[in-house]
Amino acid sequence: MLASSDKNLGLFETLKVTNSKPVFFQEHWDRFAHSCSTLGLHCPLSYSELEAQCTQNLPTEGFLKYTLLNNKLTIETGPPRYTPADFKRGFRLTFSNTPRPTTDRLYKFKTTCYDFTERHKAQQAGFDDCIFLTPEGYITETSIANIFFRIGKTLYTPSLDCPILPGIIRAKIIEREENVVEGLFKREILLDADEIFLTNSLMGAMEVREVKSVI
Rank of each mutant, 00 (worst) to 15 (best):
M1H: 12
A3L: 14
D6M: 00
F12G: 03
E13C: 02
E13H: 04
E13V: 06
S20C: 06
Q26N: 14
E27N: 10
W29Q: 10
D30M: 08
A33F: 12
A33G: 00
L41C: 09
L41W: 09
C43T: 09
P44I: 09
P44K: 11
P44F: 10
L45S: 10
Y47W: 13
E49V: 05
E51C: 07
A52V: 04
Q53S: 15
Q53I: 12
C54P: 02
T55K: 13
Q56Y: 00
E61H: 14
F63V: 08
Y66R: 01
L68C: 03
N71L: 08
L73V: 15
T77R: 13
T77Q: 14
P80F: 12
Y82W: 14
R92N: 12
L93R: 08
T94S: 13
T94V: 11
T94D: 01
T94P: 01
S96T: 14
T98V: 15
T98P: 01
P101I: 09
D104A: 05
R105I: 09
L106V: 03
Y114G: 15
D115V: 01
T117Q: 13
E118M: 11
A122K: 06
A122M: 01
F127T: 06
D128P: 12
L133Q: 10
T134P: 06
P135G: 04
E136I: 02
G137P: 02
E141F: 07
T142K: 01
S143H: 11
A145F: 07
N146L: 10
I147Q: 06
F148M: 12
F149K: 06
K153I: 09
K153M: 08
L155P: 03
L155V: 13
D161K: 13
D161W: 00
I164R: 09
I168T: 15
I169G: 04
I169H: 05
I169L: 08
E175F: 02
E178L: 13
E178R: 15
N179A: 14
V180E: 04
V181Y: 06
G183D: 03
K186M: 11
R187L: 01
I189L: 12
D192H: 15
E195F: 11
I196K: 14
F197P: 08
F197G: 03
L198V: 01
N200R: 10
N200C: 07
N200M: 10
N200S: 09
L202E: 02
A205C: 15
V211E: 06
K212W: 05
S213P: 00
S213T: 12
V214Y: 15
I215M: 14
I215R: 07
